[in-house]
Design a protein around this nucleic acid. Structure first.
Length: 858
RNA sequence: GCGAAAGUGGCGGAAUUGGUAGACGCGCAAGGCUCAGGACCUUGUGGCCUUUAUCGGCUGUGGGGGUUCGAGUCCCCCCUUUCGCACCA
């Protein structure tokens, strides 16, 4: 050891040499000892299974913006392991997807080559960061050993009727040249490239997640350890509505059109029937129209519109009267049939009854096109409100009643009330009329009560190469047939041409496309679409448990031991993508008898993003494309992994976004060097590093208990930034103890050992090194976590605020547990308090044990 | 527009959930050590005022009201920011 005190460091080069020496040494140790501390055997009692979001093996090196989730997970992993919990913390690769394929088109490098290279680079980065994963359980989704089980699951879903091929209006991304799931086209833009999507009517493969809508909704109530925000987002996405289906007859066509409404109580006010331009009946409705061609052109233009433009806020409502009449089944009156852009084809039946008087959208539409507005709900107001309204009207010099109480014609009244002009239902309340009218519809065979969801089926077809081939074969004679299970996996051909033009490269690989029909053995074609990569990540957490299993996706017995995931960590961006699909898949797996749970992730933690000012001047998410990324590799090379880890964890509450500051790292960096200096100074003095304190209840012992308590609770609460702060405080105490010539050597040794142990989840390399110098025989990962005694985790003396009428005037120090009487006596001997009490009459005193004494005076 | 979260020094952020606001760190200032320093060490640091000095005073958590002995924390109104949803009948 050539270095003694941090203060004597004369060159940063020697500093970083020292860091590298220590970090390299411990990386090797952990690797060599892996079997000892990475225990993936059966959980001993309270088995905690910890997980990270799958990282995407992107072409770029990971930067500071990516690091938080890994450091956070590793700190938690190490902490739990130190406390004796058996933890399984695996890592794998969500390796399929568009970026690798686009890279292949640009550079001519096969996606598999670039992906595997990226994976190797990332593993090397993880090693340099000191994050521990059990690499014996690594999973790579782009390898046939993995994706064959995607295909296997697809066949199971097909058998159960949960995988279907159907034609429907789907989202098409003109930039990615593929269809997308509804979840990947949120807000009308492609999730990956932000290009506005357009609707296309195509036949595609879907997984029937809608069959599970209710179960997915119910399960949300059990997710108490999930961020409320994510639960709410999923609830809204599933979008349950209760109402009724009603059939409207179109006598001239001999057809009925079914609509869904949440307000069957307003049916007597339905003055039009409005269909989405995509509605199946539209061509026939236009058939006899005098301006048929013009209307057809309009319908086409609406359908071709980008979703974002059509659905944008304030988008003008646009419609056309078909001239055809429908019959309101409750009033018996003829009403016009319209086609309008604001009716969404894929929700409900793609048709609605317009009740302009009681729906703002219908109202707006009716105003524009002069559709009758018939009021059928009378608002019930409380007396005060009526009086209030009356007063307002009088005040404005209008005749009372000019503004009718049930709602004016200036807007729709969308609230509840009492029915009027509704035949036999008049005078009923909205809520009872809803049920009565729905029941009446059921009785008459024209609909009935109905629950609907916004959730759409999961479109999994992708017209791209780099994904799991969908194991289906199309025969001219026998139609669509599954690939026989014995022929799995359907392997991606290695020789596809990546030209970027002419659609999916798979279509051009004759040896892949051309096959024989499993039924008639005649010539047939393989499906060339591949699966959405979210299929891969829907069950990978189970494959981690049993990654080499060649006979099943995983062993249900092992899954029963470990799953569901105890703690899941990932970004908020997957709130309704991955996390919804994985919940859906868990239910499928349960129904297949492979797992016993429905909720795959018992607890979820969403870490916030790291932000930084970008060249545009805005503070935004750190990313290479925004030009505000800070490279991690050089930073770690200069400061060491421990300092970078400590700083990133110190930035702020991990669930919130934190702004990166280039200077801030010096705080945690200096802290780590000071810890090292303190331990070295102690050892240089020749003190016994294994010494034990002479007495139990000492101020130093209390400081230790307090530090252990705080840091332990911080880690349990994911409050890593305060854990670092509390470690700094504890170090400040340890320094003064180490510098105190009168201090008990055993006491100091114990304090330093405690400090180093608590520091390990934050700065694993340095803490291991110092632990060893202090005589630790085993890795800190195996050395246990110090216990604390809550009774000792407080200072012996309390400083008590003395208030006069609620204002702090003085502070007194008393032994903890002192009585109110003692506090009053002590306060009365305090000069300032005496002055404040002088000439005043005491009203009462309020005493908060060990905290505060408030003397109220007049 | 609807919903949710948040607003604390020059900055990042603490605050045992109604009990001494500003922990910890950055930055800044003074001093030390240095040939020197952007290294390291020590001390100070919300604002305003006051004192020769001290155990001094006032004010202060977006703004305004309220409850309470006591409010960053609870209640009401308003402002601002961020995020989510956004024609789902």
């Amino acid at each position: 050891m050539s270095f003694t005190l941090a203060g004597s460091m004369s060159s940063t080069t020697t500093k970083s040499d020292e860091i590298h020496r220590i970090e390299a040494k411990w990386r090797e140790r952990w690797e060599a000892d892996r079997a000892a501390f990475v225990d993936t055997g059966k959980p001993a009692g309270e088995g905690t299974y910890l997980l990270v979001m799958l990282p995407y093996p992107s072409g770029d090196r990971l930067h500071v913006g990516h690091a938080r989730t890994y450091f956070l997970t590793d700190a938690l992993h190490r902490f739990l392991r130190q406390t004796g919990v058996t933890v399984f913390c695996p890592m794998g690769w969500d390796a399929f997807g568009l970026p690798a394929e686009n890279y292949a088109i640009q550079k001519g490098i096969h996606p598999r080559i670039s992906t595997l290279a990226n994976i190797a680079a990332m593993k090397e980065q993880f090693r340099a960061w000191g994050v521990l994963y059990d690499w014996t359980k690594e999973v790579t989704t782009c390898e046939p050993e993995y994706y064959r089980w995607n295909q296997w699951f697809f066949l199971r879903l097909l058998e159960k009727g949960l995988a279907v091929r159907k034609k429907s209006a789907v989202n098409w991304c003109p930039s990615c040249l593929t269809v997308l799931a509804n979840e990947q086209a949120e807000g009308g833009v492609c999730e990956r490239c932000k290009t506005p999507v357009v609707q296309r009517e195509l036949e595609q493969w879907f997984l029937k997640i809608t069959d599970y809508a209710e179960r997915l909704l119910e399960g949300l109530d059990t997710l108490g350890a999930w961020p409320e925000k994510v639960v709410t987002m999923q609830r809204n996405w599933i979008g349950k509505s209760t109402g009724a289906d009603l059939d409207f007859a179109i006598p001239s066509l001999g057809e009925t059109v079914r609509v869904f409404t949440t307000r069957p109580d307003t049916v007597f006010g339905a003055t039009a029937l409005i269909l989405a331009p995509e509605h199946a009946l539209v061509p026939r409705l236009l058939d006899k129209h005098p301006k048929r061609a013009e209307l057809q052109a309009w319908v086409k233009s609406v359908r071709d519109q980008e979703r974002i433009a059509r659905e944008a806020e304030g988008a003008e409502k646009d419609g056309r009267d078909t001239g055809v009449k429908a019959v309101n089944p409750f009033t018996g009156q003829e009403i016009p049939v319209w086609i309008a852009n604001f009716v969404i084809a894929s929700y409900g039946t793609g048709a609605l009854m317009a009740v302009p008087a009681h729906d703002t959208r219908d109202f707006e539409f009716a105003k524009k096109y002069d559709i009758p507005i018939v009021k059928v709900i009378e608002e019930e107001r409380k007396e005060e409100e009526e009086e209030d309204l009356l007063r307002r009207e009088e005040g404005e010099g209008r005749a009372p009643g000019a503004e009718s109480l049930g709602g004016s014609t200036a807007s729709a009244y969308t609230g509840e009330g009492r029915l009027i002009a509704s035949g036999p239902f008049s005078a009923k309340s909205s809520s009872s009329a809803r049920e009565l009218i729905a029941a009446e519809a059921a009785r008459r065979g024209i609909g009935g009560p109905r629950v609907r969801y916004r959730l759409r089926d999961w479109l999994i077809s992708r017209q791209r190469y780099w994904g799991t081939p969908i194991p289906m074969i199309h025969c001219e004679k026998d139609g669509w047939l599954p690939v026989p299970e014995k022929d799995l996996p359907v392997v991606l051909p290695a020789d596809a041409p990546f030209t970027g033009t002419g659609g999916n490269p798979l279509e051009k690989v004759a040896s892949f496309v051309n096959t024989t029909c499993p039924r008639c053995s005649g010539p047939a074609r393989r499906e060339t679409d591949t699966m959405d990569t979210f299929v891969d990540s829907s069950w990978y957490y189970l494959r981690y448990l049993d990654p080499k299993n060649a006979r099943a996706p995983f062993d249900p017995a092992i899954a029963k031991e470990w799953a569901p995931v105890d703690q899941y960590i990932g970004g908020i961006e997957h709130a309704i993508l991955h996390l919804l699909y994985a919940r859906f898949f868990a239910r499928i797996l349960k129904d297949l008898g492979l797992v016993t749970f429905e909720e795959p992730f018992s607890a979820l933690f969403n870490q916030g993003m790291i932000t930084r000012q970008s060249p545009t001047g805005r503070v935004e998410k750190m990313s290479k494309s925004r030009g505000n990324a800070v490279s991690l590799d050089p930073l770690i090379a200069e400061k060491g992994a421990d300092a970078v880890r400590a700083f990133i964890l110190f930035l702020g509450p991990p669930e919130k976004d934190s702004e990166w500051s280039d200077e801030g790292i010096s705080g945690p960096e200096r802290f780590l060097w000071r810890v090292r200096a303190t331990v070295d100074r102690f050892l240089q003095a020749g003190s016994d590093p294994k010494g034990q304190p002479a007495k139990v209840d000492t101020p130093a012992a209390r400081a230790r208990h307090m530090a252990v308590k705080r840091v332990t609770e911080d880690f349990r609460a994911f409050s890593f930034h305060t854990a670092v702060a509390h470690l700094m405080e504890f170090h400040n105490h340890a320094t003064s103890l180490a510098g105190d010539a009168d201090a008990d050597v055993g006491e100091t040794a114990t304090t330093l050992r405690t400090l180093v142990t608590l520091l390990h989840p934050i700065a694993p390399h340095l803490s291991e090194e110092l632990h060893e110098r202090m005589g630790g025989a085993k890795s800190l990962l195996l050395s246990g976590w110090p216990a604390f005694d809550a009774a000792l985790a407080v200072e012996e003396f309390a400083s008590i605020a003395v208030q006069i009428s609620g204002k702090v005037r003085a502070e007194i120090r008393l032994r903890r547990g002192s009585s109110e009487k003692e506090a009053v006596t002590e306060a009365e001997s305090n000069g300032i308090i005496v002055k404040w009490l002088d000439g005043k009459q005491r009203v009462k005193t309020i005493w908060v044990q060990d905290r505060l004494l408030n003397i109220v005076v007049k």
